[in-house]
Amino acid sequence: MNIAIDIASWVLLTLGGVNLLIGGIGVLRMPDFYTRMHAASLTDSMGAILVILGIMLQAGLSLATVKLGAILAFLLLTSPTAANALAVSALLAGMKPRTGDAVQRTNHEADA
């Protein structure tokens, strides 16, 4: 039983780690603000959720698990909201999503 839980938890942790890594690479490599936000959301959602679930399995039935649950709930509420606020303010500030041939240009801006 213990081994099963251990395996499950490590699978979750590893998957979460992979998601975090992909999200990190995405933030660096994506061409413009909105696509980068998309990549960043991966770390928030899949990355963090899987890691916390993995730790919850490790912690077993204890106060720590309850706290982790609270953190999870908090994260699920705040990170989409923060992303929304960020995107709305970007849009209000006049930042347009790049489409088509504009990608080439933004690459230069990203390097600068």
Binding site: L77, T78, T81, A82, N84, A85, V88, S89, L92
Partner: peptide, 15 residues
């Protein structure tokens, strides 16, 4: 305050 930002506003009140 944040009148353009309906979602953050509602969620913020909740939190």
């Amino acid at each position: 305050g944040l009148r353009h930002y309906l979602i953050p506003r509602i969620l913020g009140r909740l939190l």
